[in-house]
Amino acid sequence: MTSVPARFIDLIASVTGHVQHMPLTPALATSLNSDFPADGPWLAELEALCRQGCAEGWLCAREAGGIKFGRAIKPGDATHGFSVDVVEMDDIVGPHHRHPNGEIDLVMPLDAAAAFDGVARGWKVYEPGSAHSPTVVGGRALVLYLLPGGAIEFTAA
């Protein structure tokens, strides 16, 4: 298995450095969609690396319940205390979980009609204490999620 490329970490760090002192609210998604737009070069490069990572096995190397997943980066200084996970989902509802510190998601559809929790492409932010059953409809999508402190609690719905 190939290790996580430095460029992937650098791209993530540019976002985590940008948001590290901001409250995780839905308004942050608006800011991220403006500063790191779905049709911009930053996302194009990151998406290409995510696809490469899935092909090479340094992303989404595990599978359970029809969902491919994996933690690419543990929380630490390089990513301003955020962990980085990537999942590949295909018309599926994932396991219910709670975000003690919030969650920042980046949706990258692999199929044109795919959407994650109502977002077709771009950013979605969940506030601290929120919970959901992550859902992809319309095909396959990659979802990169950033967790402050790596905190996530899987729960019953």
Rank of each mutant, 00 (worst) to 15 (best):
D35T: 15
L46M: 12
S34N: 15
I12F: 09
I152W: 02
A44I: 03
D105A: 15
A27I: 06
E88C: 15
L24N: 00
L28Y: 07
G70F: 03
P23G: 04
A120K: 11
A113W: 04
F69L: 09
E127H: 14
G53Q: 10
P134W: 02
P128R: 05
G94M: 04
R140W: 01
L11W: 04
S3Y: 05
L24P: 01
G17F: 11
M108E: 04
G17I: 14
N101E: 13
F8N: 03
A27Y: 07
A131R: 10
R71H: 00
G65K: 02
P23A: 10
F82G: 01
G150N: 10
V143Y: 07
A48E: 15
L147M: 04
A72Q: 09
F82W: 00
I152Y: 06
L144E: 05
T79S: 05
F36Q: 00
D91V: 06
V119L: 15
L147N: 13
A112P: 07
M108G: 05
I92E: 00
L49P: 02
V86S: 01
A72I: 07
S130P: 13
E153G: 06
P148G: 09
A29T: 05
L43V: 11
L106S: 10
G94K: 05
F69M: 04
P109M: 06
H132K: 05
C50W: 01
R7H: 12
M1L: 14
A112R: 09
S31V: 14
D39A: 06
H80K: 08
T2N: 10
E47Y: 10
G149K: 01
I152K: 13
R121D: 13
I9P: 02
C60K: 07
D91R: 11
A115F: 04
H96A: 13
L46P: 01
H99Q: 03
Q20I: 08
I67K: 00
C50E: 07
H96I: 06
S31D: 12
G138E: 09
V107L: 11
E56S: 08
A64V: 11
S83I: 06
Y126E: 14
A78V: 03
P26Q: 05
M89S: 02
V93G: 12
L11H: 01
R62N: 11
A115V: 09
G70E: 02
G70K: 03
I12E: 05
R98A: 13
L32V: 06
V87L: 15
H132E: 05
T25H: 10
